[in-house]
Amino acid sequence: MLNVETNSLKMLDEQIAKIADGDKSALAVLYNCISVSVYSYALSVLKNRSDAEDVLHDTMLEVWRSAPGYQSMGKPMAWIITIARSLCLMNLRRKSRFSDEPLETAVYMPENEELTSEDKIVIRKCIETLGDSEREIVILHAVSGFKHREIAEILGLPLSTVLSKYNRAIKKLRKTLSDN
């Protein structure tokens, strides 16, 4: 699973370098490290599990394609999430032209058997209670381990906005999860 500690970042950089050389086992290692972050992020933005799956898939392909041109700035995760983000935005743009899907649990709730009923409540509350950008920020911080400053960079928002949205979101979640 992803870990944005320095060592892990170094490890990701190494994998991307190997991927650039066509090493698919490195792509498998990378997938294991980043799939949770990418999928969770995509799910939080798209609120649709099948679209999120597509984004995870396409992000991996894009990494495979773009790895030779990747220049390490010590921020491999930010690079990957930026790819995922632009794929999400493309998906949203496409969606808004053709349909306006209602928000239904069945549409977004993942089907993994490991999910406990509490996990499902947490996911449902994240999707239904939080605003879109609040959710995006919370997932990037809680699941991917990005610092608020890094999230501000990725999303192109002022740090103060990220912090206040994050705090508001956590407050909402605390309340709604305690009510359950």
Binding site: K24, N32, V36, L56, I123, V143
Partner: peptide
């Protein structure tokens, strides 16, 4: 709260590695 979110979302990921490869 962060831990709960992390745990729930971590279990959500479909395994599509074969298809990617």
């Amino acid at each position: 709260i962060e831990q709960k979110i992390k745990s729930a979302f971590s279990k959500s990921v479909p395994d599509i590695l074969d298809s990617v490869l």
